[in-house]
């Protein structure tokens, strides 16, 4: 019942926003209505309809060994600049000490893994946390993009149109997770795409492929028979910064309260 109310309210809000948009820019109201049309891919070997999928990722913190194979594979697969300032995914190490202080580090995004931390004395608990774009259901980055250069595809994946991006960097400011950066050469915003080029061809994202311990689970959110659905059934789940109401689609099992 509660769900029904919230979803109805959301519809009303959407309609109101749509009406406001329609009054100002009539073209988009019609565009919105046509949006069930399937996608004609330029590469004709692709047989993928974005409307038939909803993608998400599960991350089991207890399984992560901090080898950084994921962030390494991501840099290779997506031609992310190798310099240590640009990451689509990275792994953080948390060390919660006896005195309550928390030390976090992430040397070069963990693309070479971790070494023993110099301050690892008196540690109460410690663990690794892989991070990436949360592909939020309500993405603040898409909300603020002035021109529609970053958008949510019908399958829930948040993408950036490099050809259309102005490089204003408002989306980078709006992302609460630090998941975006400005590509130093193209001067456009960049982020994780869930390896969109792979998933439309039935492959898993490179980080999932490279994870040796199955700490990352990729799959459908709306299908009952999906590894991600099972992951959400078997674990207690948390998301990052739930108070911001971004509704992330990256779900963490065994999430610690120190993780920001």
């Amino acid at each position: 019942m509660k769900n029904l109310i919230t979803s109805k309210r959301r519809d009303v809000l959407k309609t109101m926003a749509g009406l406001a948009a329609g009054v100002l820019f009539p073209k988009f109201l019609t565009a919105e209505q046509e949006s069930v049309k399937p996608m004609d891919w330029a590469d004709e070997s692709i047989n993928y309809n974005p409307h038939e999928h909803t993608w998400g990722m599960g991350v089991d913190i207890d399984k992560c060994i901090g080898c950084g194979r994921c962030s390494n594979a991501c840099k290779i697969e997506n031609d992310v600049p190798k310099e240590p300032f640009f990451f689509r995914t990275w792994v953080e190490r948390y060390q919660v000490k006896e005195n309550g202080e928390t030390i976090i580090d992430c040397p070069n995004g963990a693309i070479d893994g971790f070494e023993k931390h110099p301050e690892s004395e008196d540690v109460l608990r410690s663990f690794f946390v892989p991070k990436l774009c949360n592909h939020c259901e309500k993405p603040p980055c898409v909300q603020v993009c002035p021109v529609g250069a970053t958008f949510q595809s019908a399958d829930g994946v948040v993408l950036v149109d490099a050809e259309y991006c102005l490089g204003c960097r408002y989306c980078i400011q709006a992302c609460p997770y630090g998941a975006r950066f400005l590509h130093p050469v193209t001067k456009t915003a960049e982020k994780c795409t869930f390896c969109y080029h792979r998933i439309v061809r039935g492959e898993e994202p490179a980080c999932v492929e490279a994870c040796p311990t199955e700490a990352r689970i990729f799959g459908e959110l709306d299908q009952k028979a999906s590894p991600l659905h099972r992951f959400k059934r078997m674990n207690h789940i948390g998301v990052l910064k739930p108070a911001l109401n971004t509704e992330p689609k990256v779900f963490y099992a065994h999430l610690d309260m120190e993780v920001k």
Partner: peptide
């Protein structure tokens, strides 16, 4: 600690 993308 800052996120790795936040240096710039």
């Amino acid at each position: 600690y800052i996120f790795p993308n936040e240096i710039e």
